[in-house]
Computed example of a mutant assay.
Amino acid sequence: MSSSSSNLVTVGRITGVFGIKGWVKVHSDTEPRENILEYSPWWLKTRHGVKPVEIDQAKPHGNGLIAHIKGVDDRTLAEGYTKVDIAVERDQMPELEDGEYYWHQLVGLKVISEHGGSPQLLGKVQKLMATGANDVLVVKGDKAELGSLDNKERLVPYVPGQFVTSVDLQAGEVRVDWDPEF
């Protein structure tokens, strides 16, 4: 991650408005989803810059959450906050146990396959996906820039001890036991 990328970590998104009193629909990337409500302030990444807001009410609704932004009391005002990412300050996030990582720590790491004995660079982690059974690393090769094996995109199950053999944040790499043919 570049040092210019600030201290903010994206944890969700405001996806739409709810009702006429300034409530918004929230998609949370936290686990469990209600954990997003424990952070304050939320930093909204609008096209006019990053803006801190305070949530004064929130509750589960359907598959997501709805929240009320303090001082936003009608639908028209709330519409100005839709389709924006919600970020929080990195130092507000709880410390993890050894061997546990936040998704944002894994994005951008080089992925090296040790399958078959000789290490091969598959590419970089572009993003992660939750699939239900386990998370999946989306690894994008870039032969020209990275010197990776090829330019393929691979989906590697994030299963430590089985497919993921090590994560080294200092070295900026994830080592995997993954057949490059897949």
Rank of each mutant, 00 (worst) to 15 (best):
residue 46 T to P: 06
residue 89 E to N: 12
residue 102 Y to T: 01
residue 81 Y to L: 15
residue 70 K to I: 04
residue 21 K to N: 12
residue 46 T to W: 10
residue 91 D to F: 12
residue 94 P to C: 08
residue 83 K to T: 02
residue 47 R to V: 09
residue 78 A to K: 05
residue 37 L to E: 01
residue 86 I to W: 14
residue 81 Y to F: 15
residue 53 V to G: 13
residue 82 T to R: 09
residue 50 V to P: 01
residue 94 P to F: 08
residue 106 L to W: 00
residue 37 L to K: 03
residue 66 I to P: 02
residue 40 S to V: 09
residue 65 L to V: 03
residue 31 E to G: 04
residue 20 I to T: 10
residue 36 I to Y: 00
residue 91 D to M: 08
residue 18 F to D: 05
residue 41 P to S: 10
residue 56 D to K: 14
residue 57 Q to P: 02
residue 14 I to T: 06
residue 92 Q to S: 12
residue 63 N to C: 04
residue 79 E to Y: 06
residue 30 T to S: 05
residue 63 N to T: 11
residue 81 Y to Q: 14
residue 15 T to G: 09
residue 70 K to S: 14
residue 79 E to Q: 14
residue 22 G to C: 02
residue 32 P to D: 06
residue 52 P to L: 10
residue 106 L to F: 03
residue 57 Q to S: 12
residue 47 R to D: 15
residue 39 Y to P: 07
residue 65 L to M: 11
residue 28 S to E: 10
residue 35 N to M: 05
residue 82 T to I: 09
residue 83 K to H: 10
residue 90 R to S: 08
residue 88 V to L: 03
residue 63 N to Y: 11
residue 102 Y to N: 01
residue 105 Q to V: 02
residue 20 I to C: 07
residue 86 I to G: 12
residue 70 K to H: 09
residue 85 D to A: 13
residue 100 E to T: 00
residue 24 V to R: 07
residue 20 I to S: 11
residue 98 D to L: 13
residue 89 E to M: 08
residue 105 Q to H: 05
residue 95 E to M: 11
residue 77 L to D: 15
residue 65 L to T: 07
residue 83 K to L: 10
residue 58 A to E: 01
residue 26 V to W: 05
residue 106 L to E: 01
residue 69 I to L: 14
residue 14 I to E: 11
residue 88 V to R: 03
residue 57 Q to A: 14
residue 107 V to I: 15
residue 39 Y to M: 07
residue 84 V to P: 07
residue 27 H to F: 13
residue 53 V to S: 15
residue 71 G to D: 04
residue 97 E to N: 09
residue 59 K to Y: 07
residue 19 G to I: 08
residue 18 F to L: 02
residue 47 R to M: 09
residue 88 V to K: 07
residue 47 R to I: 04
residue 86 I to A: 10
residue 63 N to P: 11
residue 90 R to T: 03
residue 55 I to V: 13
residue 60 P to T: 05
residue 34 E to A: 03
residue 59 K to H: 04
residue 27 H to Y: 14
residue 96 L to T: 05
residue 37 L to S: 02
residue 31 E to C: 08
residue 27 H to R: 14
residue 36 I to C: 00
residue 20 I to M: 12
residue 68 H to A: 06
residue 34 E to K: 00
residue 26 V to T: 03
residue 52 P to F: 08
residue 68 H to C: 03
residue 20 I to F: 13
residue 50 V to S: 08
residue 100 E to R: 04
residue 49 G to M: 05
residue 102 Y to D: 00
residue 98 D to Q: 15
residue 49 G to D: 06
residue 54 E to C: 05
residue 45 K to Q: 09
residue 28 S to V: 07
residue 53 V to H: 15
residue 53 V to K: 15
residue 43 W to G: 10
residue 81 Y to D: 14
residue 85 D to Y: 11
residue 23 W to M: 02
residue 23 W to G: 00
residue 22 G to P: 02
residue 36 I to V: 04
residue 71 G to F: 05
residue 76 T to F: 15
residue 79 E to F: 04
residue 40 S to G: 13
residue 81 Y to V: 13
residue 36 I to G: 00
residue 80 G to E: 13
residue 95 E to F: 06
residue 88 V to Q: 04
residue 26 V to A: 05
residue 61 H to S: 03
residue 41 P to I: 06
residue 84 V to C: 15
residue 59 K to V: 06
residue 33 R to E: 14
residue 42 W to Q: 05
residue 96 L to M: 13
residue 86 I to H: 12
residue 33 R to D: 13
residue 92 Q to R: 05
residue 30 T to I: 05
